[in-house]
Simulated assay, not measured.
Amino acid sequence: MGMSVNISVATEQDTEQILKLQYLGYQSEAELYGDWSIEPLTQTLESLRAELADRHVVVARLGDEVVGTVRGWVDEDGVGRISRLVVHPRMQRHGLGGRLLRALEERMLADGPVRAFQLFTGHRSLGNLRLYAGQGYEQTGVRQVSRELSYVTLEKPVHEPLATAV
């Protein structure tokens, strides 16, 4: 019988595995855009440790192995900023990305008021765009970064539960 994937808050002990997974997972993005200098491929261990200390970081574990991760924070305007969603290539297309997104959204909501969630991806990253659309994110803008790359910004509003009559 196979092991199940568990989603939890990242710990300091996960840092190296997260960085290695990020490096592996972003190879396809670098190839898609012909740019191996993208930040997920050049981030240092020290920089990632700093993010772990002041952001929400969620991981998916298969046994002791980190096979997925995503991070985010809530800005001063109440927008949950989501970044660096990555799933190990052998674990993709099984719903793990969506599970990670939902877990991060729940963590940010539990931490305080959030009016919307926002993230971005490259315009050629069709799998990412499909995933985000399937999770309720809608395109709100496109920003050209270079001749080869435009960032597509996507947002998902937070709907407050209806108040019950007293």
Rank of each mutant, 00 (worst) to 15 (best):
H88D: 14
N128C: 07
E138G: 13
S37N: 13
H159G: 05
S125M: 13
G80N: 05
V67A: 04
G95C: 13
L131R: 08
P89A: 12
R84K: 15
W36R: 15
G97R: 09
G68N: 06
H123C: 04
P89I: 11
A50S: 12
L149I: 12
V66C: 05
E105V: 10
E76D: 14
L104M: 07
D35V: 12
R81L: 13
E76N: 09
R130K: 15
E160G: 09
R102D: 08
E39N: 11
G112L: 06
L85T: 03
A103E: 04
P40Y: 06
G72A: 10
Q144L: 10
G136F: 06
F120R: 11
A53V: 01
R84D: 03
E148Y: 05
E148M: 09
E65D: 11
H88P: 01
E106R: 14
V58M: 13
S47I: 01
V58L: 07
Q144P: 02
M91C: 13
G98K: 10
N128M: 05
L41Q: 07
L96H: 08
E51T: 02
V67H: 00
R102T: 15
E65C: 06
S150L: 00
G63L: 02
L131E: 04
G97H: 09
P89R: 12
S125E: 14
V67T: 10
L101I: 15
E76Q: 12
L62I: 00
Y137S: 05
M108K: 08
R99T: 06
L104Q: 06
R93F: 11
A53N: 11
L131T: 06
A60S: 07
T69E: 07
G68C: 06
E105G: 06
G72F: 05
E51Q: 13
T121K: 02
M108D: 02
R143F: 14
H159Y: 05
H159Q: 11
M108Q: 09
V58N: 00
D77G: 10
A116D: 05
V158A: 04
G112M: 06
R130N: 12
I82Y: 04
V58C: 01
V79C: 07
R143D: 11
G78Q: 11
R49N: 08
R84W: 12
R61D: 00
V152E: 00
G80Q: 06
S37L: 07
T140A: 06
